[in-house]
Design a protein around this nucleic acid. Structure first.
Length: 597
RNA sequence: GGUCUCGUAGCUCAGUUGGAUAGAGCAACAGCCUUCUAAGCUGUGGGUCCCAGGUUCGAAUCCUGGCGGGAUCACCA
């Protein structure tokens, strides 16, 4: 049983025995003792003064005395103001470490009684331009959160909804048709997504010129924007697309295919994947029936022009359009439909949408509207709203060429890792192939950790001029710690020191070693919290603390050269448990750990 | 203007049901490789936790108001 739970129960019992009443609800708070104080767990006694009717120090003394006498694991206690610090005996910690070693998936919940089925939608790119740094954050978050949720024993499905239709897609198609000269990714020797993205940019440039020309001819800006020949042509193309015009559809298929192939490469390099990919071209008509039904049932209102609206004024929001006056769908309509379809397809208990915080309002409305339609599962729909990635100067703007391209960044990370390793004189002894693999692991690890260590909700800053660090609170730091541990294992093999299956409780243990075990003990809780908050950052920060703690231990605890065999084996054993958790935690972040670096 | 959100060291960030003296990394400076990987370890300096009230034994954390930044409020997606 969890030691914390055991302590809480013991305190409950103590309060009853000593003060003759039940402790008030939630009054028993057990937390980890802060490092600067003696002890392992701390009971905050202030909330208990109501029943003890005695000063804090005295209450703490009485409870401490009782716990020491009645709980095996409590070896000692001390009182500082209203804080009762409890020390847990070494036997408990060593035994705990032994159970960790035996548990293949330590920290993970398996065989949960009623596992949930959770859908997580992430990535969801547009097929008109390549992925950039913002998408990287989305992809890494989605992939990692899926992993983290699975540790809690639930079934998670990762889905991608590709936005492959609409006016923005027609823009790049039209530009290619006009100025592309039948170029293909092969001929241009360029990834398809980049090639198509170039045409999207070109469209925008030419469109701007036309607008300027119309303005010069005396038209208003709005008028110019609406009447520029290029936009009219693009709109015409969209109409043809919707009418299933063969020529347009063929071009659309061809160019989307280029882009999707490009995305596949980026996804693979990033190390993310999906259980299913949906295409908006196949789902964009969903939702209309739901809306019409809602109107018939009086949930929505129809205006004179025929458009259908949800009135959300009673929820403190505005009115929201659901069907245009011509009867066609809007974004919200589609999302209503896809949400409904998803919950049915998978018989899901929860759905998570990894979407930037600029769409907070949209998801707020989506939930309310689904609720109004009578779907009780609207409560189980979560928007994992993440903050934008900004440059030091502010937002990334594609038009100003300040976007950080995903593929470029990945390449750059590897070459930085390469430079670093050369500077440090590492990896010289290894084959070219192994070297390449290691620097990729490190470069990618640096990037992923850099992004995932930040609380998803927060806007984060990325400075492309300063390359991502490899020292300190970084991915490579943690990877390095892991590599050190593997190096220990290799050395141990050479020296004939074997890794014991378990440790005897009477081995000599230092404070630092106990601290490490305590840090290990926090792993399951860290995962629970991370899953609850959809926050890989909490896993990242946990693993960092563990690695930092280990490096301190490593620095002043000889392992191979320790003369006491039992101590030497214990340290090797402890190191291996740390290594396993680093590998596990980093794995949840989608970061690999190298055997050497 | 309405709604939402953020504000912690020079910079990037931790700090989770309110708990003890607010922590890391980077950058700066000073040390530690004849000893298991120095991508490491140790130390120094650096704080009005945006401001003002309130709640309480106790507030970076909760409430109210203000200041500052961001997002959003389309018959776009």
């Amino acid at each position: 049983m969890d030691i914390e739970i055991k302590l809480i129960e013991a305190v409950e019992e103590a309060v009853k025995k000593i003060y003759g009443q039940k402790a008030p609800e939630k009054a028993i708070q057990i937390q980890k003792t802060r490092k600067d104080f003696e002890g392992d767990f701390t009971l905050v006694v202030f909330p208990l003064l109501r029943v003890s009717k005695k000063p804090p120090e005295q209450t703490a003394e009485e409870l401490g005395e009782y716990l020491k006498a009645h709980v095996d694991q409590v070896s000692d206690y001390n009182v500082i103001k209203g804080f009762l610090n409890l020390s847990i005996n070494q036997k408990f910690w060593i035994e705990y470490l032994n159970t960790v070693a035996q548990n293949k998936n330590y920290g993970f919940i398996s065989n949960k009684e009623n596992p949930k089925t959770i859908l997580i939608e992430y990535s969801s790119p547009n097929t008109n331009k390549p992925l950039h740094l913002g998408h990287i954050r989305n992809n890494l978050l989605g992939y990692s959160v899926a992993n983290i949720l699975e540790t809690q024993g639930d079934k998670v499905y990762k889905v991608n909804l590709v936005n492959d239709r609409g006016i923005h897609i027609c823009k790049s198609m039209l530009a290619w048709q006009k100025w592309g000269n039948e170029i293909t990714p092969e001929k241009a020797n360029k990834k398809g997504d980049h090639l198509v993205g170039d045409f999207y940019v070109q469209f925008d440039q030419e469109y701007k010129k036309e607008i300027q020309q119309l303005i010069d001819e005396g038209k208003s800006e709005t008028e110019a924007k609406q009447n520029a020949p290029l936009i009219l042509e693009a709109q015409e193309m969209l109409r043809k697309w919707e009418a299933n015009d063969t020529e347009v559809r063929d071009l659309w298929k061809k160019m989307n295919d280029w882009v999707l192939k490009g995305f596949d490469i980026t996804y693979e390099n990033l190390g993310v994947d999906f259980d299913k990919t949906y295409f908006e071209s196949e789902t964009y008509k969903l939702g209309k029936e739901l809306v019409l039904k809602g109107w018939e049932e009086g949930t929505f209102i129809k205006k004179e022009d025929g458009s259908v609206w949800a009135d959300l004024t009673s929820d403190g929001l505005d009115q929201k359009i659901l069907l245009r006056s011509d009867g066609t769908s809007v974004y919200m309509t589609q999302d209503l439909g896809t949400a409904h379809q998803r919950f049915n397809d998978y018989n899901a208990n929860e759905a998570i949408y990894v979407v930037g915080n600029e769409q907070n309002y949209h998801f707020q409305v989506l939930k309310i509207v689904l609720g109004k339609l009578g779907f009780t599962w609207s409560e189980d729909l979560h928007h994992l709203s993440y903050g934008m990635v900004e440059l030091p100067e502010g937002k990334m703007k594609s038009r100003e060429g300040t976007v950080v391209d995903a593929d470029d960044l990945l390449l750059e990370m590897t070459s930085t890792a390469d430079e670093m390793s050369r500077e440090l004189g590492k990896l010289e002894a290894y084959s070219e192939e192994e070297r390449k693999q290691i620097i990729e692991t490190i470069g990618l690890g640096a990037l992923k950790y850099f992004i995932l260590k930040v609380d998803p909700k927060k806007t984060m800053t990325f400075d492309p001029k300063e390359s991502i660090d490899f020292n300190g609170n970084t991915g490579p730091f943690i990877q390095y710690t892991y590599a050190r541990i593997q190096s220990l294992n290799r050395k141990a093999k050479d020296k004939g020191i074997h890794l014991p299956e378990e440790i005897k409780a009477d081995v000599e243990v230092t404070n630092k070693e106990l601290q490490l075990i305590k840090q290990i003990q926090s792993y399951p809780e860290a995962l629970r919290e991370a899953a609850k908050d959809f926050s890989p950052a909490q896993v990242a920060n946990y693993v960092y603390d563990l690695a930092k703690e280990f490096n301190q231990f490593y620095h002043d605890h000889p392992i191979m050269s320790e003369s006491d065999k039992a101590v030497s084996e214990f340290r090797l054993f402890l190191s291996n448990q740390v290594g396993r958790i680093i590998e596990s935690g980093m794995g949840l972040l989608g970061i690999n750990v190298p055997e050497r670096m």
